[in-house]
Design a protein around this nucleic acid. Structure first.
Lengths: 189, 189
DNA sequence: AAACTAAACTAACAAGCGTTAGTTTTATAT
DNA sequence: ATATAAAACTAACGCTTGTTAGTTTAGTTT
């Protein structure tokens, strides 16, 4: 369904948008980077907007699928949260550029793409809310404002892309353990 | 030094950029929102870029000044961190729009403004690193990867603007306590 | 060899951009 | 009233933007 060339264009676009932002990347610079004239891009894609939507909705789908796995697990709330931490780490490592593009450029989505992005984001947060509520109910999670918990859990996970690529000491597996330890157990000794 | 009209223009620009992104806001839409023709804006500002720089470097300066206060405190590392949590909350509440503009649009800065932004950001992180190192050294902070600690502390603080405006239950003072409790003590019970 | 198809090309359009020049209005101070 | 200065206006320039039309090239199938 998605040709090799199209994938290449979107991949190059992702790394350009990552560095410069969606609006600053022109079809001409994108074409040059691909090694082609601007008009030729339109043999493969239908619009600039389609490229952005493809990148962002691809990441969003990865999260939706990963959340489905976590929800289906027969496990304690805290273990489901650990599973989600793994999910964020894996997506960040496997789709670093797309992840960064999503976080910084989703506001440039239009129409149905924007609607779909917001829908999947809201659904993800709602699912996490449910897991946290269950944890508070069974006493495994501290009884503080659930929205605050969601937020202080999700922020570091969402912005892993800022930090992970520039550190060298931890691999994915170590990161998973240390991050889970810090997020669940806190900073204090 | 900065006239009333100029402040108004920059303030209107901030809320437009916040919603639409820097590149998507044109001088014509900005002018219309201010109630004036585009060319008239140039009686007060010298360029679109100046507006962005003014917004972002203003927030950056607030952080630099706040960090200076924290550094100068005669207090334990954990109390300095609590002070920084307060700082982030105060800036987020007092300059919500500017804060969001900074986080999402700093990559559109150019030349010396970009250099200055990066300098102040790096300095802030270096100062926080020092505080955390001191805390690890005296045993008050857990001995895990310091970069990971910085990051998982800073992410929720930086993205408070996403969350704080849409919740109603906590005021600034309560938020300060609960957030410090969660960030320092973790989620787990 | 002929026909077909995918994907490149050149050229250009219409729209929108930030910004400037030159002029007029408005308000304040003399 | 008159002069001055601040801040608005109209008009336009030069450029860049995403995209389209029409054509040519290259590779594969019959």
């Amino acid at each position: 369904m998605v040709s090799e060339r199209k994938r290449e264009i979107i991949s190059v676009a992702s790394s350009l948008i990552r560095r410069q932002g969606y609006a600053a990347v022109t079809m001409r610079t994108l074409a040059q980077e691909v090694g082609v004239k601007a008009a030729s891009l339109y043999n493969h894609i239908t619009s600039k907007q389609e490229i952005l939507a493809h990148i962002i909705l691809g990441v969003a789908q990865s999260f939706t699928e990963g959340m489905a796995v976590a929800k289906a697990m027969d496990a304690q709330p805290l273990d489901k949260i650990k599973q989600l931490i793994s999910l964020h780490i894996e997506i960040t490592i496997q789709q670093t550029s797309d992840m960064e593009v999503m976080q910084n450029n989703w506001m440039y989505l239009e129409g149905e793409s924007m609607a779909q992005y917001k829908r999947s984001r809201n659904q993800y947060e709602a699912d996490l809310r449910q897991i946290i509520s269950a944890g508070i109910a069974d006493g495994s999670i501290r009884n503080v404002n659930p929205e605050l918990l969601i937020y202080s859990l999700l922020s570091p996970l969402r912005y892993l892309y800022v930090w992970f690529p520039r550190q060298k000491t931890l691999d994915a597996e170590q990161l998973k353990d240390e991050l889970a330890s810090v997020l669940l157990g806190g900073i204090e000794n």
